[in-house]
């Protein structure tokens, strides 16, 4: 599904990622873990075209997306959420998800200004689909709330709903459990499984080890920009190098 080949990223003098390669299997939940500053977010930024890798390539479904612009990826089925929650804060919850459906519609500036019949129909579909996705994640009651006024946990859910609305093949989530309480984290775990069961591949960057070990089939460990290990949760838990990296004497 998604393949990273020898990704290296140098910021000035700092090597944030060094020769990182791994593949994400279709239909799986893959975890990417590692201490702070390991390069996890940088990796997502490269895959989504926000940063350009120094060397290496990214393959999505046999298509080389190494140098594709960010805005092209949603249409190819790749979306993400952000560590710092990037909502459209001034817009309603429903409108946020409707932006998620941007690639599922195509009316231009002209047909929108003149309300051509095709645009009216499209608008109705976008609204209905948007509501369906809010029901899927359990935000249906909050549709008309301003996104900026949502409690933090709901904000994270909204970001996921918005990404799902694009009907992706693969979703990258950057620390979706950060800032959630334990009940919310528990609900998140079942939502992530539900997403996987609906046929979407999930890549999960997360510090919450219980969550990662619970939902992931496969885990990649990064440390100081290098891939340290790749295996099943059990293999990772027993890997001495991983243990020493996390205890901080590596």
């Amino acid at each position: 599904m998604l393949k990273l080949n020898g990704i290296t990223k140098v910021f000035g003098g700092l090597t944030a990622l060094e020769d990182v390669s791994f593949a994400v299997e279709a239909g799986s939940i893959t975890g990417v873990i590692g201490p702070n500053g390991a390069g996890k977010t940088t990796l997502f930024n490269i895959v989504t075209g926000l940063y350009t890798q120094t060397t290496g390539s990214v393959i999505l479904d046999r298509q080389d997306i190494s140098f594709l612009e960010t805005e092209k990826l949603a249409a190819l089925g790749l979306v993400r959420t952000f560590q710092n929650v990037e909502l459209f804060r001034e817009m309603t919850v429903l409108e946020n998800v409707m932006v998620g459906l941007h690639t599922k519609s195509k009316s231009g500036i002209f047909s929108c200004a003149f309300r051509l019949p095709g645009q009216m129909k499209e608008e109705k579909t976008i609204r209905e689909k948007g509501r369906e996705w809010l029901e899927f994640t359990g935000l249906g009651d909050l549709a008309e709330t301003t996104a900026g006024s949502l409690p933090f946990g709901k904000g994270r859910l909204l970001e996921i709903s918005r990404a799902l609305a694009a009907q992706p093949k693969i979703i990258l989530m950057d620390e979706p459990a950060a800032g959630l309480n334990s009940r919310e984290t528990f609900e998140l775990a079942s939502l992530i499984r539900k997403i996987k069961d609906s046929g979407v591949t999930v890549v999960l960057v997360e510090h919450d080890m219980d969550l990662v070990m619970d939902v992931c089939q496969s885990i990649v460990v990064l440390n100081l920009g290098k891939k340290l290990a790749h295996g099943t949760p059990r293999e990772i838990q027993e890997n001495p190098e991983v243990i020493s990296a996390y205890l901080g004497d590596g």
Partner: peptide, 13 residues
């Protein structure tokens, strides 16, 4: 206006 990166990730050019 609210988040250009998020808009682009959602496919907005």
């Amino acid at each position: 206006h609210d988040s250009e990166v998020a808009a682009r990730v959602m496919g907005v050019n």
